[in-house]
């Protein structure tokens, strides 16, 4: 899986080049127009940090940031986002250079199996940018699109609260 990846099947006639700006780099894909953004990221760009939990917008595991706004990447097509700035978990921070939210998730044990975690972190990044959540109750309400079957919810909320405080006091 390289920067250029393409669909080979029945849709080869329909396949078209699509350039996506992902985590600060332009990536060219050759995909059928009905390829979801999620499958484009996972199967064509090898960015498997974004997870597929339901493929129906019901679980939030596939949450990414498009122009800073959190969306379910399974409910949108890759071709619709040419020219947009896409940020996935791989663009939030890396081992050795973790984003404060990622560090807060580790410190608060805000995950167990880790499968919903990239979606929770991307969603929380979007939530903090929205500036709407001020209380734990508001965080809970506005994070309710991101399911966690391991039941780490109280720790996730604690990690987000912590990261929000850090963001507020940052110079």
């Amino acid at each position: 899986m390289g920067t250029e990846a393409s669909a080979a099947g029945v849709f080869s006639a329909a396949v078209r080049p699509v350039t996506l700006s992902v985590n600060g780099a332009d990536r060219e894909l050759r995909i059928a127009p009905w390829t979801t953004l999620l499958d484009g990221l996972r199967e064509y760009l090898g960015l498997t940090g974004t997870k597929k939990g339901c493929d129906h917008g019901q679980c939030g595991a596939c949450t990414v940031l498009v122009d800073g706004v959190r969306i379910n990447s399974c409910l949108t097509l890759a071709v619709m986002h040419e020219g947009a700035t896409i940020r996935t978990i791989e663009g939030i921070g890396a081992e050795g250079a973790l984003h404060p939210l990622q560090q807060a998730f580790i410190d608060h044990d805000a995950f167990q199996c880790g499968y919903c975690t990239p979606g929770q972190i991307c969603s929380a990044t979007g939530l903090i940018a929205e500036g709407r959540a001020r209380t734990p109750e508001e965080i809970r309400e506005l994070m309710s699109g991101n399911l966690c079957r391991c039941g780490a919810y109280p720790n996730i909320v604690a990690a987000i609260e912590h990261a929000m405080r850090v963001a507020e006091t940052a110079p």
Binding site: M1, R42, G46, L47, T48, G49, T50, K51, K52, T88, I89, E90, I92, G93, A94, E95, G96, L98, Q102, Q103, F105, I106, D107, D109, F111, G114, Y115, T117, P118, I121
Partner: peptide, 21 residues
């Protein structure tokens, strides 16, 4: 003690069964 596999999980680097290239 914090999870030793934490950094891999919070960065999306941890690979699950359907994700191996």
């Amino acid at each position: 003690v914090s999870r030793v596999d934490g950094p891999a999980k919070v960065t999306g680097a941890a690979r699950y069964a359907g994700e191996f290239p």
